[in-house]
Structures are given as structure tokens and as C-alpha cells.
Design a binder for these strands. Structure first.
Lengths: 189, 189
DNA sequence: GATGGAAGCGGAGGATCCTCCGCTACGTTC
DNA sequence: GAACGTAGCGGAGGATCCTCCGCTTCCATC
């Protein structure tokens, strides 16, 4: 229940939150190597303490900053299913997901924690990802191409593992192919 | 060529290196949550600068500290092959590898970098891991149970990804099973 | 529109990481 | 065994992370 709101945020707090998010999105999209949280707070015109109150960890900030874009990625799943056979839709979506993580520097590390912990109250993106992936898998199962005994959460974790560990894009692709083979409905040869 | 030695280390430098390694092994095996490099240097009785000179990154220190144990793991591969069919030997070895990473707190993170970069001069453990894994895969290929078109490096990266991303041991096991299915020689059903 | 209490703010400060450079002492050469 | 060039040492210090707590500002209530 991440959405319990015992009290609506005070007006100034809400304003600061918005400013922080705006600054974070900007800072994260800049090509520069790393962003210090102090810099984001400064840019947003608030104290560092305020940043940490709203976003207790770097991951929380990253998750919130990318929630929109990540949502778009999830929305793409039904579209893919409309135009492709389920297994190819699944493969395509996973590829996009990896692409997405690769472009966002520092995102993968943050997302590891987001994805890993179901208990994380800041992980509402996780639910959306799970839903999108679950839909793709279910379509494959219905079509008889994908095994029925695989958990979407496991696949999601596997994806984040690939994005974390893979060095170059080509390697990630090979690992995705391997994963797809494992997911396929087949009998031993 | 990680083993080029333009000059044999000076006596005092060698002594310091040994002390650092000893302190690091001890510190890493203590149950405590995290170890500061400063503490290791202090315990070894050398300056922090000396630590960083010998081991420029935390990963380098971790890798060196665990090189022995990791070696034993690699040595176990031939034994497994003697007693089990190749695919089960492979599965067993991968399981042990994950176990090993799980017990060593902070090891997985360090090993990610060690495994990821083939160019890392401190990654001589990587070569041993590759050799052990390659042998297991080759045996499976020879027995006709494992596909011939999979690179050992890719599998190694996949393993480190699993250990990085998987939350609980049971999940890691499920992901290993999935990986095994991908590795098996089979025809689509 | 005054007021009290709590929500929220901000930044000083402790902890850690890592670099840099003046000093020390090793070992080589004669 | 003296002396000298340099490999190696140490730790101060700058950068970042994150916490903690005294001060400020909002807003519910009257």
C-alpha cells in the first residue's frame, strides 16, 4: 500500500518536492558523468536536508524522476502485442527495457534496488513493470510459445541482472536470446 | 598481460602488501556490515595512501583477498565432472558460485566489475573462472546436452547478474534453472 | 486576524572515499 | 660502507554522502 496518505503534503513541501524533481530530471539527463545530490538540492533552491526528507535515498529520487518515462515503456507493451506475435513482442519489449536502462546513466544501479525489493514504498514503478511484463508473458503462454511456469517477477529480476552485468549492448542481446530460449515452451532434444 | 613485472617489488613494499591482504581477509570475513578501507589500512599498520597504491580500487583489494578461495571453487569443476553427468555438474557448480558470492558480503558488487572488464589487470581471477566454466560447458557440449554456440564469458556475466539482482536464494535458484534451460540443447516444441 | 503546535526547512558536521605531494628509507653502485 | 637516485610511504585535505536538530512557516482553530 504505497499510496496511503495520512495527511496531504503541506503547500510549501509540495512545491519543494516539485522543484526537486524538476532539477533531478534535468541533472540526470545531462551527459555529465555523475550528479551530486547536493548539486540537485542547490539547483532546486532547497537545502540538502529537504532533498533527503523527500527522497531518503538516491534510488527514491531516481525512481521518481523516471517514473513518467518508465510508464511510457510499460504502455508500449500492449502496442507491441497488437503488432507482433507474443514471443517477438516479449523479446522486443525486453530489448527496449535494456536499452532504456543503458541510456540512463546511474539508473541501472538505482533500479536494481527498486526492482529487488517488493517492500520498497518508493517502488511503485515496479508494479507497472510487473504488469506489462506479465501481460507479455501471458500472451505467449496463451499462444503456446512461452512456458506457463515462469514468474514475471523472476524475469524482471533477470532483466535487471542482465543490464547490470552486461558490458556491451551486443552481450546483453546474447543474454536476452538465452533468456528467451529458457522461457520458450520446448521439449528436451 | 597482467604479469609483466618491470621491477620486483621493494622489500618493504612487499611486506606492506602482505599485511594489507591479511588485514583485508580478516576484515572481510567479520560479520560486520561494512568495512572502511581506512580501517583496513590502520589495522595493517600502514597509511591509507599505501593501501590505495597497492590496490587502487576496492575491487582490486577484494579480488586479491578472495583469490585463493575463488581458486578452490574453480578447482572443484573437474571433480564435479568426475562424479556427475556434465549438465548436472554445470548446474551444481553454478549453484556453488552463487552461494559463494552470497556469503561474501560486498563481494558480489566488487566481482561485478572484476567479471565485467576483461581489461582489468587485477582480474586474473576472471581467467580462472572462465576456464572452469568453459570446461564444464565443453563437457556438456561433448555429451550432447549443452548447446555449442554459447560463450563462457556470457554465461559468467549472466551468473554475476543473477547474483547481483536476485533477492533470495530461492529466486537465484529459479533463475539458474531458467538459464540451464536456455543452455540445453533442445528443439522448439 | 491571532495563536499554538506540528510539519517542514536548512545546513553544520561526522564519516568515508580518494588524491596528491613532500618526506623516508631501500638497495645499488662504487 | 658512503652516498645517491628513486620506489615507496603517510596522512592532510577536498569532495561527497547522509544525519540530526534548532529554527521557520504553515494552517487549523477560535
Amino acid at each position: 500500500m504505497p499510496e496511503t496518505s495520512p495527511r496531504p503534503l503541506r503547500a510549501d513541501a509540495l512545491r519543494n518536492r516539485e522543484r526537486l524533481l524538476e532539477a533531478a530530471v534535468q541533472a540526470f539527463s545531462r551527459p555529465g558523468p555523475e550528479v551530486t545530490l547536493d548539486a540537485i538540492a542547490r539547483e532546486a533552491g532547497v537545502g540538502i536536508g529537504t532533498l533527503y526528507r523527500h527522497f531518503p535515498t538516491r534510488e527514491a529520487l531516481v525512481e521518481a524522476a523516471y517514473r513518467n518515462e518508465l510508464g511510457k515503456l510499460c504502455d508500449a507493451a500492449p502496442d507491441l502485442l497488437d503488432h507482433l506475435p507474443p514471443d517477438r513482442a516479449l523479446r522486443g519489449w525486453m530489448s527496449r527495457f535494456i536499452d532504456y536502462l543503458a541510456t540512463k546513466r546511474g539508473m541501472a544501479d538505482a533500479l536494481r534496488l527498486v526492482i529487488a525489493s517488493g517492500a520498497n514504498p518508493y517502488a511503485q514503478s515496479r508494479d507497472r513493470l510487473l504488469e506489462a511484463l506479465g501481460r507479455l508473458l501471458a500472451a505467449g503462454v496463451a499462444a503456446g510459445t512461452i512456458r506457463a511456469d515462469v514468474d514475471a517477477g523472476d524475469v524482471l529480476v533477470n532483466l535487471s541482472g542482465i543490464s547490470l552485468a552486461a558490458g556491451e549492448r551486443a552481450q546483453a542481446d546474447r543474454l536476452l536470446d538465452l533468456l528467451m530460449d529458457g522461457l520458450r515452451h520446448h521439449r528436451a532434444g
